[in-house]
Write a protein that binds this DNA or RNA. Structure first.
Ligand code: MN
Ligand code: MN
Ligand code: ZN
Ligand code: ZN
Lengths: 149, 149
DNA sequence: AAAATAATAATAATAATTATCATTATTAAT
DNA sequence: ATTAATAATGATAATTATTATTATTATTTT
């Protein structure tokens, strides 16, 4: 039996391509991990700038993206997609294609959400909720196969 | 017992302020209701333009917003808010303030999602799901009371 | 140490959305 | 019905978040 131990001190790779862990990238990750809030890119920029005053906003955006790709952080909100509108105001959920950004309705009865005391435990006055699945739509699945081989 | 039937042919008001149902507004609503897809603003624009060639894109945006305010249609996605980042990649859900756009974590165990065959029934290859509550955060609740009275 | 590769800072470009404002349409008042 | 008051529109400018570009700097490989 062969055991391989990989110590990630200088480099990070959850995908096949290895990418170097730069001072900037590490700092962005660290600062973000400290915060319990969910900052915007420019808020991250402001935090990181206190330690690395010469960092560029573009570097922050670039690295937030790469860190999310590597699964070290998460992006909240519908990335890179423009707003979409629904002619049906009745409550129902959706599924969104991560590749072509298409949005479909989830057939009624496919999901059940049970919550207990969300308002009480968060202090929010709840107005609604939205559940969104994401993945590859049928069309994009076949498209992907063509290019992959 | 008194039954009041309101026929909305010329005006719409689900809020206190009445707003006139213009040709443009009606057409945007009609076209959107026809579509089973979830079009972007410019896709709505293209559809409506076939019937009202002189309509402006700004009018489409304006009315999509007003129709959503009146609850006749829905906006999908985090309206008017910029992307937010989460230092915690472990699966968990969120609650977002509709007023100040702040995002908080939902305490673990407050919700349970049960689904059956989402992938099979939609044809999507599911990658994940995200549940987001929305409402007024504690701070904004008190802020609102100040201005209201 | 030198060459090759990758990431950065600074800045320009893009694209979606929102604001402005003169004109037109709709509603209320007379 | 006319007129005055109000609201909505079309055209376009402005804004804002994000992405692309590129010369420079840092890191990795040889
Ligand atoms: Mn829908
Ligand atoms: Mn979170
Ligand atoms: Zn797709
Ligand atoms: Zn708030």
């Amino acid at each position: 039996m062969i055991i391989i131990i990989i110590i990630l001190e200088k480099r990070v790779s959850l995908a096949e391509k290895i990418r170097s862990m730069t001072r900037q990238r590490r700092m962005i990750l660290q600062e973000l991990q400290k915060m319990t809030t969910h900052p915007t890119a420019d808020q991250v920029y402001d935090m990181v700038r206190k330690k690395l005053p010469r960092i560029s906003l573009a570097t922050v955006y670039r690295n937030l993206d790469l860190l999310a790709q590597d699964g070290l952080i998460r992006k909240l909100g519908t990335a890179g997609a423009q707003m979409r509108f629904d002619g049906n105001p009745v409550d129902h959920h959706h599924i969104r294609c991560t590749r072509c950004h298409r949005v479909d309705d989830l057939p009624a009865g496919t999901v059940m959400v049970k919550d207990k005391g969300v308002g009480e435990r968060t202090g929010y006055r709840i107005a609604g909720l939205h559940l969104e699945y994401n993945g590859l739509c049928p069309e994009c699945q076949t498209e992907m196969q063509k290019t992959r081989v």
